[in-house]
């Protein structure tokens, strides 16, 4: 199946609008990019888009939440599922930056870790 996607490159302020031709989910061609980085990004974005997720989780006996992030980017399609899992998490003090708050979020193999100390 042939498919055409138009995406914006995020590597620099040029923001090249790229036209990506896909066949059965595989990238056939990329046009509109100015440099090689655009092509690399187009491949990544059209075959396996990933995003870092940053959020906050509840803290026991406190109205102030704790900021967290996925240790590495996770598949873009899992973002809302990840948020849902995080909404069920409540941590207790003390927590240190880099402590694991939730293991293997949504089966991605990626842990969610604290991004600040909560002492």
């Amino acid at each position: 199946m042939l498919e055409e996607r138009i995406i914006t490159c995020i590597n620099c302020p040029m923001g090249c609008r790229m036209n990506v031709q896909l066949e059965d989910g595989a990238v056939k061609s990329v046009t509109g990019n100015t440099c090689k980085r655009g092509e690399t990004y187009a491949h990544q974005e059209c075959t396996m888009p990933v995003r870092m997720v940053t959020a906050v989780v509840a803290v026991k006996d406190s109205p102030m939440p704790l900021s967290v992030k996925t240790r590495t980017p996770i598949p873009k399609a899992k973002i809302f599922e990840c948020m849902k899992e995080l909404s069920r998490v409540t941590v207790s003090r003390p927590v240190h930056e880099k402590d694991v708050v939730l293991e293997n979020v949504c089966g991605t193999g990626v842990d969610v870790i604290a991004t600040r100390n909560l002492l």
């Binding site: 940053t54 959020a55 992030k69 991004t115 600040r116």
Partner: peptide, 19 residues
């Protein structure tokens, strides 16, 4: 600023604001 993207120039990695 709990999102990431801070520190790429100075530390060579993308940190969140609190980090």
């Amino acid at each position: 600023c709990i999102h990431n993207g801070f520190g790429l120039h100075r530390f060579g990695e993308e940190l969140t604001g609190p980090e």
